[in-house]
């Protein structure tokens, strides 16, 4: 029983991170109809920038917020410089550009941050919580809390504000959105900034547990993409569910079978889902429910 609970905790911890990455994929997909393969690099940038900012002497909370804001700004710049010039082109071209952009971001990170693994201090010092024979690290509680906060904030933005409604409207019908006065181009920029910010939040939150380095983006990108696909890409609520589910699948596969299986789960999930229901998952942005 306690073994099961331990796997559950580990699964939900990683799953929360995947959920944040998957949300990033979903938001950009809804706005552009394209997959942003640079999403994992935003995760990397969040962690690395946060470490660099603390090196500069910033207190951790300030460094964390600054890293997330800076990454969001980089996301917006990425859209303006790389994606905007080909706006209106096929999603496939946007996908190619994001793949190229990911390589550029990784190389820039190597240049500025160096090749070493870096560690971040936990947000709160202290012993793990113990209950029902399970130990939960305090950082895990931070991950859950921040993920929940981000999901709720995003839901409120989309559901309760005129700006969020305008973002949804643009995702549903871009031309009609323009006809009612929405600056559709800006909505895409904001989508990239939001996605980058969510990725950075995940990168910052998990850095104290796993360490971080310039090259961590690609692997987490695959996980987040698998989670988004599992959730039927385009729907934020199911993207979060997809992230949690992927985390649990990995955790149980590694725990009950073989730790070596952990990283294969995401690929198996991708293949299975794409085989079973490809059309439902690569549906057009018009059917997106945001």
């Amino acid at each position: 029983m306690s073994e099961f609970l331990q796997f559950l905790v580990a699964g939900l911890k990683n799953g929360s991170i995947y959920a944040l990455i998957a949300l990033g994929f979903t938001i950009v997909y809804a706005a552009t109809g394209a997959i942003n393969f640079a999403q994992g690099e935003f995760f990397m940038l969040g962690g690395m920038l946060c470490v660099s900012f603390t090196d500069l002497g910033m207190p951790l909370p300030v460094a964390a917020v600054a890293a997330i804001a800076a990454t969001a700004a980089i996301g917006a710049a990425f859209e303006l410089l790389a994606v905007r010039p080909i706006a209106g082109d096929s999603p496939l071209r946007i996908i190619m550009v994001t793949i190229g952009g990911a390589v550029v971001l990784r190389q820039l990170a190597l240049h500025f941050f160096g090749p070493d693994e870096r560690a971040l201090a936990p947000f709160t010092e202290g012993a793990s919580l113990k209950a029902f024979g399970v130990a939960v690290e305090l950082q895990t509680l931070w991950i859950w809390g921040l993920t929940a906060l981000a999901v709720v904030a995003l839901a409120l933005l989309y559901r309760k504000t005129a700006f969020g409604r305008a973002m949804r409207a643009t995702a549903i019908r871009r031309d009609a959105a323009r006809l009612v006065g929405i600056n559709a181009g800006m909505m895409v920029t904001v989508a990239f900034a939001l996605a980058a910010g969510l990725g950075a939040l995940a990168g910052v939150a998990v850095a104290p547990l796993t360490q971080t380095a310039f090259g961590v983006g690609a692997a987490i990108g695959v996980k987040g993409f698998a989670a988004a696909i599992l959730g039927g890409i385009g729907n934020p609520i199911t993207a979060v569910a997809g992230g949690l589910l992927l985390g649990l699948l990995e955790s149980f596969a590694a725990g009950y079978f073989d730790p070596a299986y952990k990283d294969g789960v995401a690929l198996v999930v991708l293949l299975v889902v794409l085989f079973v229901a490809p059309q439902g998952l690569l549906a057009k942005a018009g059917r997106v429910k945001v």
Binding site: A162, R165, A166, R173, V180, K289
Partner: peptide
Amino acid sequence: RLLFGPMTVRDNLELGAYGA
């Protein structure tokens, strides 16, 4: 018509005033 199909009638109407 190009309505925002999944959104409610009220949301569609309120979006009509977005430019204000």
